[in-house]
Simulated assay, not measured.
Amino acid sequence: MANVVERPWGWFETLGAGEGYLVKRLCIRAGQRISLQRHHHRSEHWVVVAGTGSLLCATQTIGAEVGTALLIPCGALHRATAGEHDLLIVEVQRGELLSEDDIERIADDYQRVSERAQGKC
């Protein structure tokens, strides 16, 4: 795979981009989860393409299985958690800033909480 970015929870790769959108594939390793986060400049649409787990958006948690789709509005807290097997998600980002710099981490298993979330900004 080209363009793979390793993370403590698994990896992601960028599949394509255009005016106002970016498409990624995320692999969350079995038993791992991404940070509880939000974005101030983009929305996301997740589609589960392999594996199982759970998806959180705002106050709602839904089961993740092949075909599950979730719309994450700009500013909404969200997190994906893998179950017993790797969870593979295709993510479509839409917005004015499509960058890793637009991640505000509220809670994280790997101690990567944003300064803004800690009240330092």
Rank of each mutant, 00 (worst) to 15 (best):
H78T: 02
A69P: 03
G95F: 09
T14E: 15
R79I: 06
D101N: 15
H78Y: 06
Q37A: 01
E96K: 10
P73N: 09
L88S: 03
T68W: 08
G83T: 03
Y110G: 06
V113R: 00
T81P: 03
G16D: 11
T61R: 13
R112H: 09
K120M: 12
C57A: 13
E19V: 13
G95L: 13
A69Y: 08
E6K: 15
G53P: 04
S99V: 00
Q32R: 15
A82T: 01
V92N: 00
E96Q: 12
R79E: 07
C74R: 14
A50V: 12
H85Y: 09
G95E: 07
L88I: 14
A69Q: 10
G51S: 10
V47T: 15
G16I: 14
D101R: 15
L97H: 11
A50W: 11
T81K: 04
E104M: 08
G119A: 07
S35E: 06
L97R: 15
I106V: 14
G95C: 13
S99C: 05
L70E: 01
C27Y: 00
A117E: 01
E115V: 04
L97C: 09
R42A: 05
A30R: 01
I72K: 01
L55Y: 06
Q111G: 10
G63S: 13
C27H: 05
H45C: 11
Y21T: 11
E91F: 00
R112M: 06
W9Y: 06
T14A: 09
G31R: 07
E65L: 14
I103G: 04
R105Q: 10
G83M: 02
R33P: 02
V49D: 07
G20H: 06
A30L: 07
G75R: 02
E19I: 09
I62S: 06
I106E: 00
K120A: 09
A64S: 05
